[in-house]
Amino acid sequence: MNAFSRIKSSQAYAEFESNIRLQWMLVAIIIILAASFAKYLADGLNAERNEVKQQINLLARLQNAATLPLDEVKLTETNQNLQIALKNIPTVSSSSTAEAKALTDIEKMVGSLIKRKRINLLGSEQLQIGQVPFWSVRVDIAGQLNTTDFIEFLSYFDQDAKSRRIASLQYSPKTSNSLNLVVDMLYQRDRNE
């Protein structure tokens, strides 16, 4: 007696054969599982299709850019702007020097404006932009700042300050004049090293 004839002669199979509702429920379960599997496959294909479309669009843009001639005037102007921007970023010899300089620079810039100040070094990270290595130093500043000094304080971090930016700022001028901010300072590695 093989396995199929054993199953056919079992009590469970006899109940299944006599119960029409159970048979329809099993058919519905199989249909739901088949639909779920088909949707899973379709979603995977759609994701791959979208990724391929993005790659094709990127390739078309790159091919279009490759056919356009380089404008020597714009290239020279961009290089000059880069050199000017690099001259505005202070140079240091090491990451520890960058961290010390960041703390000193912050103290010089805004130290006199903030009362009960706490300046903490959060860390530094080495960055490579093109062929130029940089250190980005993150500093946390907390204390109290008078509302009359707020504009002067922000002027140290405006668009003219190419080597420093505010990462986050919390200021409560109406209650306690409390100030808490995180500043990123950028330093270029000395090329003579």
Rank of each mutant, 00 (worst) to 15 (best):
L121Y: 05
Q126V: 03
E17A: 14
A47F: 05
I119E: 08
T175Q: 10
S36T: 11
L86M: 05
R116E: 09
I30M: 12
L62A: 05
A3P: 14
N81Q: 12
V183E: 01
L169S: 11
M109W: 11
P90I: 00
S136D: 11
V52C: 04
A66M: 13
A42V: 12
S5L: 15
I166M: 09
L186P: 04
D160M: 01
A167W: 01
N177W: 02
G111I: 04
N180W: 02
I151C: 06
L33T: 15
T97K: 06
G130R: 11
G123K: 06
M25W: 06
Y187M: 00
A167C: 02
V27L: 15
T147M: 11
E77K: 06
L127C: 04
K53Q: 15
E99M: 06
D149T: 15
D149K: 00
V27K: 14
K115E: 10
M109D: 10
S163T: 02
F4R: 15
G111T: 10
Y156I: 01
V137R: 10
L169N: 06
S178E: 14
K108D: 04
P173C: 04
K117C: 03
S178D: 04
M109P: 06
V92D: 02
G143L: 11
E51Y: 11
G123C: 01
L58R: 14
R61P: 08
L59T: 06
Q83E: 08
S172F: 10
A85I: 01
F4A: 08
V110P: 11
E72G: 04
N64F: 10
G123L: 05
L75F: 00
L113G: 07
I84E: 08
I114N: 03
S163L: 00
N192E: 02
I114G: 08
W135K: 00
L127F: 14
K39A: 08
R164M: 07
V182R: 09
L145P: 13
A47M: 10
S112L: 05
Q144R: 14
R138Y: 12
I56S: 13
N2H: 12
A142Y: 08
E15H: 15
N79Q: 04
F134C: 13
T148M: 08
L169V: 03
D43G: 02
V132N: 12
N64P: 13
I114P: 13
Q128I: 05
Y156L: 01
E77G: 01
Q11H: 14
N2F: 07
L41N: 11
P173N: 02
S36L: 12
Q126D: 07
D190F: 00
D43S: 06
L121F: 01
I7W: 15
A65E: 09
R6I: 00
D184M: 02
K108E: 07
F37K: 15
R49I: 09
R21H: 12
L68V: 10
I7V: 14
K174I: 06
K87F: 04
Q63L: 05
V110N: 03
M1I: 13
N57R: 09
F150N: 13
E125H: 07
N81R: 09
